[in-house]
Simulated assay, not measured.
Amino acid sequence: MSKKTLLSEIKEKIDQLVNAGFNNPTQIAKRIHRDLSIDETERTINHTRGTVKYHIHQSKKRKSNPALAQACQERGINFDNVGIAWNKDKHWSIQFRPSETGPTFEEMLQDHIDAIKNHNFKYEKIRRQNYSLPCLLVIDPADIHVGKLASSFETGEDYNTQIAVQRVKEGVDGILQKASGFNIEKIVFVAGNDILHIDTPKRVTTSGTPQDTDGMWYDNFLIAKRLYVDILDKLVKIADVHVMYNPSNHDYTNGFFLADAIKSWYRTCKNISFDVSIAHRKYFKYGTSLIGTTHGDGAKQQDLPLLMAQESKKMWSDTKHRYVYIHHIHHKVSKDYHGVTVEALRSPSSADSWHHRNGYQHSPKAIEGFVHSKDNGQIARFTHLF
């Protein structure tokens, strides 16, 4: 059976199953593999599942644009390739886009549930060794902006989803390698902070600011989820992990959904803990260190020390080394206040068109990590530059 013939049969089978009342992509893919006797070495169920989702999405798109679909059929145009169309008569020439909003929230939720059911949750509790001089490692990939698009033709440097993922993975590996000389007994992984570039299908931030984007919003959500899973799977092999999530201005809603999805993914893992509430400031105590994190687009920097004292009274009284790691501005700023050091972290993302035009560019791009001892606070810092 040729690949083209197999794909045609798969599409026909999808239509048959959907008409028969099936709507779960995973169930449809498994049924297709069974009915067509597809060899897993030739085509995986996940591959077919992707075909099912795309075919159903395109079918809905045709149904919501029947006149355009009919016109394409009459002219021999592949409807799937139509992104912009014109409706012309002797009085008007109207440009429009076919209705395409992507999957609904309910569809994405069902996809996430299916993925969790298909994931093998055999996270047995890892017994850790005791160190004589234990340390905490903070890894903070700040302002990743999965879905941001920058062209070197305009800005001097490319940036897209693929580059974002590559840099974060490389940066985390770099921090781990640099910190390998310390006895790491605990890792704090800071999540959120504009992990996603946009928050709606209209390619805008939460507040409605238009963005240059790479890919569809739902694809970028799933890519970011996979990125976090890959990182946490790697970190938990080294030490127990505590995830601190910071809501942010680019992805206030989708970022929260993503953090909650990751918490659900590791719901049976005893070696990973989560603080992924919608609270804008989070705190964590390690030995004599109190560590706070926030995105940095809300409370003023000079107010963060007093907010820390008010919002974490017990931890404040039990510690003498206090730090707040902030994000949002994409460049390094550090200042010592009375009893608290506030530090803004660098970002691995490149400047897009707006930032380039306004001159917000050329700060070092990096992912940063910090080592805290139980008794002496922050004793080392690492920077992985790009």
Rank of each mutant, 00 (worst) to 15 (best):
T161H: 11
D114L: 11
Y323Q: 10
H112W: 08
K60W: 06
R128I: 02
E343T: 15
N19P: 00
Q166E: 15
L36D: 10
S312D: 09
A366I: 01
L137T: 11
L109G: 11
L136Y: 03
I28V: 10
S93M: 09
T155P: 03
N78H: 14
M216Q: 13
T253V: 13
K90M: 07
Q302V: 01
V204T: 15
D260F: 01
I367V: 14
S363Y: 12
S277D: 11
R381Q: 15
R62P: 03
H57M: 12
N65V: 05
T293P: 01
A150L: 01
S180C: 09
P364I: 10
M1L: 09
D275W: 00
R281V: 12
R357D: 12
K169V: 10
P141A: 12
G83S: 13
D240E: 14
Q16A: 11
T161Y: 10
C269A: 13
G298Y: 00
E9I: 00
S207P: 01
K61P: 03
I291K: 01
R357A: 14
K374E: 07
L133M: 09
S2M: 08
I116W: 07
E157T: 12
I329Q: 07
V241C: 05
N246E: 09
R75G: 02
S347H: 11
H331S: 11
G50D: 09
Y131L: 04
G339R: 12
V324F: 03
L196G: 07
K285M: 08
A29Y: 05
N160C: 12
S132C: 02
T104D: 13
F370G: 00
K90D: 14
P364Y: 02
N19Q: 12
R322W: 02
H331L: 11
S132K: 11
E40C: 04
A380K: 13
H91I: 08
L36F: 08
N120V: 14
F284I: 05
N254M: 07
Q129E: 14
A259N: 06
